[in-house]
Design a protein around this nucleic acid. Structure first.
Lengths: 158, 158
DNA sequence: AAATTAAAGGTCAAACAAGGTCAAAAGGTC
DNA sequence: GACCTTTTGACCTTGTTTGACCTTTAATTT
């Protein structure tokens, strides 16, 4: 497979999928030992792969009996107002390609997008497509993804 | 044999033909070493021989575990002509919103797009979404629509 | 109960490992 | 010689891994 980070990511996602609750608790040091890496590697995985844009909440506790808890947040949007708020939080003014792909992936996994729809969106936000210089590109990308997602809820109640 | 570029091109196309998936992943630096050339030579090959107009999609990732992925977009005789026509329209450097909407409308009417898919595309190319000044905006719009349309051909089996 | 110690997890920057860009130089072609 | 394509190299940006040092909390001792 790919990098260490990728391996740890998929290990954790498998654990999450296996737990009915959509929630797991692990010990950072134990995981680090398991993959024979530095403990801080785990934090790297958590921040790059289990961010809030990607639909995860990470909580932790230090000290004896400490743990890291990863919670999968289901998307639950019932109206356009809620959706707008969600998009405000997860997209913001500026959006990197990676973060955008995370959002699309999440929507797909939650069953809000078909495969084709996610392909379209992914193509749209690629940096090659958005041939712009960097401060600007991320702004347009945020706009773009927001508009595309919002379009799906247009005229859709509940 | 021709130039170095030709050799690299045919090497990659052979790899692509050999892979069942119509998709390969390579490391730029490895390939460059293999042909004992500058890494940037690989980029030259990619942009001149594996462009989207030529039916390829190139994605890449930097950093540790980085790669270059080349995807062959499957285009069969059946849809090739349609695609070519559509690209003729969108392939122009520049595209107005009206013209773009026309293309989307036509695709929808011909049954290539679902209603939702056309909503996504329409939202993407709106001038409010593409908050850019005018010479630039139409350029990006053309890119955008082209990329989105091509994305659909990606998952199509002949 | 307070102080101490041990057991977690957190942060940050440096080192490392890719790929990208751009312009200049080199080769061909008419 | 003018023009186009190819080749090279210097410099840039992004993503990953590691390690030294810090903070918080629980358990143990006094």
């Amino acid at each position: 497979m790919g990098t260490l980070t990728d391996q740890i990511e998929s290990y954790l996602k498998q654990m999450l999928a296996g737990s009915g609750e959509g929630l797991i608790e692990i010990q950072r040091s134990w995981l680090a030992q398991m993959f024979s890496c530095a403990p801080s590697q785990i934090n790297y995985v958590l921040t790059t792969r289990f961010s809030i844009e990607q639909g995860y909440l990470v909580e932790s506790r230090r000290g004896g009996g400490g743990y890291v808890r990863i919670v999968r947040l289901p998307i639950n949007v019932h109206n356009e107002e809620q959706l707008r708020k969600l998009l405000e939080i997860t997209l913001g003014e500026s959006l990197s390609q990676q973060a955008g792909e995370g959002v699309i992936q999440r929507l797909f996994e939650e069953g809000h997008l078909t495969d084709r729809e996610s392909q379209i969106m992914r193509a749209a936000i690629r940096r090659e497509t958005l041939a712009l210089d960097l401060p600007h590109r991320d702004l347009i990308r945020a706009n773009l993804l927001r508009a595309m997602i919002l379009a799906l809820w247009q005229g859709m109640d509940s």
